[in-house]
Structures are given as structure tokens and as C-alpha cells.
């Protein structure tokens, strides 16, 4: 039998395409070829292996699924909050009534003028209060309230005396602007986006825009996200960005904290690599290895042990 034919036959045999009779014939034909006999042996051994990975406790899989469903629910809530349809609708409605458009534009212009030219006179809060007073006196229908250019949140009421109520609330409005990448407002907004995330998408976007910006507040905001973001993907993205800043004591400390608290092994391995590459003292690594949480992760412990062995 020619080599080429044997090869074709063995491929068919491995794919389970030979009938019983053909299999017997085939095995007889290769009896004189030890190299193919060995392949048959490996095939048989592979067939006999039942468990090729360690059995995982169901609890761990249940936990994983719960985490996934929690993440999906969070993402859904986020996307509802920032539904582009409703935002566009609100902007469009802003210009349906001329007095509302004037009020909104006055506020936006006032905001920037007040920011750039702090002059004596009415404060920014005063201007906002005046605008919402004006809108409140003009709105008569519930749709007017729904279409308000301002969003009211964190609202509380307290009766001061008969006939008077103290109101306490936050007012926000939407602004669009184009700025250069190194503009202080851009840095401020990136840091705000990480500090007060409105949705996962905006968090990830903010992290990706932070790459070319070396700014103390952006760096600290990335550390904040890496520590606190409930979504693993966001924490991972923040960590990836921070890995680019070398020899920074604040980041080094953040990675040490991460090794003690983070659940994701992948993130812990990257943090450990950063610490090793940034020449953290072996004593610090040794101290980390005594942490019980870290001891539950053989991969991280192994890497740390290897580093210590190579150091001496």
C-alpha cells in the first residue's frame, strides 16, 4: 500500500468513516508500519481518557452564572438610562416651545460665560434657580414637565412652617461641545465619567480616550475604576491602561491592593507582572504571598514563587 493511500485511509479511520470490515482490513494493512501503529495506539489512548480537566464544583459555575445575569441586568438598566431615542426626543422637544429654547440657551451660554469670566453679580446657582423658576411658572401639563430640559434627581421635601416647604434636589442638563484632546474640560469629563459612570459604554469609552492623556486626575480615576467598577470588563480595561504608566508609586500601590482583593485571576497575574517589571522588592512580594486570598490562586502563587527563586 502506498504512503499516500495509507494516509488517506488513516484519516478516514480517525474520522470514524470506515465500516467494521474496512477497519479490520485497514489494521491488517498497517501491521507492518510501526509509525502508523503508534498513531493507532495514541488514538486508542485518547479514546480511553474520560476526564481531561479537573471537575469543577457546581457552586462555582452557579456563581459564574449569577455574576453574568447581574452584569446583564446592570447593563440593561444603564442602557435604559441613556437611551439615545429618549435623549434625541428631549433635545428635539427643547426647541418645540420658543421660550424653553431661549431658557435653555441662556443657561448654556450663562454657564460658559460664568466659567470663563467670573464677575460679580448673580452666581451660577442663582442663574439656574431663576431658569427653573421661569420654566415652572410656564409649565402647565405633565408633558411640559417630561420635556423639561433639566433632569431633577436626589429630591427631598421638608415642611418648614405652615404653608412653606423646603425643597432639596440636583438639577442637570445636557451639553454638547467639541474640544481638543488636551483641553482641561476633556480631562475633567473623562475623570467624571469614571468617577460617576452613567453606563458601561461610557466608562469603556472614557478609558479608551484616556490613553494619550497623562493627567493626575485621569490616572486616579482609572485607579478608582479598576478598584470599584462592578463590571469585570471595565476593571480589566482600566487595568490595561494603567499598565502603560511605569514606575509610578501610586499605581504600584493600586496593583498591590488589587492582588489582595480582585477576583479575576487574569487581572491579578497582570498586576503581578507589573510589580515584577517595576522592580518591587522581593520582601513586598513575599508579604503578598502570605495573604490568604492570594493563596487560593495557584497560578499567581506559582508566578510569585518563580520570581523569588530567580531573584536569589
Amino acid at each position: 500500500m502506498k504512503e499516500k493511500e495509507i494516509k488517506k485511509r488513516i484519516e478516514q479511520w480517525l474520522a470514524g468513516e470506515l465500516s467494521d470490515t474496512e477497519q479490520i482490513e485497514f489494521l491488517e494493512q498497517i501491521a507492518d508500519y510501526p509509525e502508523y501503529q503508534e498513531i493507532v495506539e495514541i488514538h486508542k489512548k485518547l479514546r480511553s481518557v474520560k476526564n481531561y480537566v479537573p471537575t469543577i464544583p457546581q457552586e462555582q459555575l452557579n456563581q459564574m452564572r449569577q455574576e453574568i445575569v447581574r452584569t446583564l441586568r446592570l447593563q440593561k438598566n444603564d442602557s435604559l438610562k441613556s437611551d439615545p431615542g429618549s435623549l434625541l426626543e428631549r433635545i428635539r422637544n427643547l426647541f418645540v416651545r420658543p421660550e424653553m429654547a431661549v431658557a435653555a440657551l441662556t443657561l448654556i451660554i450663562g454657564f460658559f460665560m460664568g466659567r470663563n469670566f467670573p464677575v460679580s453679580g448673580e452666581s451660577m446657582t442663582g442663574q439656574v434657580v431663576r431658569q427653573i423658576n421661569m420654566l415652572a411658572s410656564q409649565n402647565t401639563q405633565l408633558t411640559d414637565v417630561k420635556n423639561s430640559p433639566y433632569t431633577y434627581s436626589n429630591i427631598s421635601f421638608r415642611e418648614v412652617d405652615q404653608g412653606r416647604i423646603e425643597l432639596s434636589f440636583d438639577v442637570s442638563t445636557h451639553l454638547d461641545m467639541v474640544k481638543s484632546k488636551d483641553d482641561p474640560v476633556v480631562r475633567e469629563v473623562i475623570a467624571q465619567a469614571l468617577l460617576n459612570p452613567s453606563n458601561v459604554g461610557s466608562e469603556l469609552k472614557a478609558i479608551s480616550f484616556s490613553e494619550s492623556i497623562v493627567d493626575q486626575r485621569v490616572k486616579q480615576a482609572l485607579i478608582f475604576s479598576m478598584r470599584n467598577a462592578p463590571i469585570l470588563a471595565v476593571r480589566q480595561k482600566a487595568e490595561e491602561k494603567l499598565l502603560e504608566y511605569n514606575h509610578d508609586p501610586e499605581i504600584r500601590q493600586a496593583f498591590i491592593d488589587l492582588l489582595r482583593k480582585e477576583e479575576s485571576v487574569q487581572m491579578r497575574l497582570l498586576a503581578l507582572d507589573y510589580l515584577i517589571e517595576n522592580q518591587v522588592s522581593p520582601d513586598s512580594i513575599r508579604a503578598l504571598m502570605e495573604n490568604k486570598y492570594l493563596q487560593n490562586s495557584p497560578a499567581v502563587m506559582f508566578r510569585a514563587r518563580k520570581y523569588l527563586e530567580n531573584t536569589f
Binding site: 459564574m64 453574568i68 495557584p298
Partner: peptide, 20 residues
């Protein structure tokens, strides 16, 4: 996932990303 990561925790990380 385990056949590539060869680590239980990492395989769980990968599995989580797969389902997401």
C-alpha cells in the same frame, strides 16, 4: 476554556466572557 488556560479560575473568567 480549560484546555487553553489550564487553570480553573482563568477558565471561569474566559467562560464568563464567552456567555456575555
Amino acid at each position: 476554556a480549560y484546555s487553553f488556560t489550564r487553570n480553573v479560575d482563568c477558565a471561569l473568567d474566559v467562560s464568563q466572557n464567552v456567555f456575555l
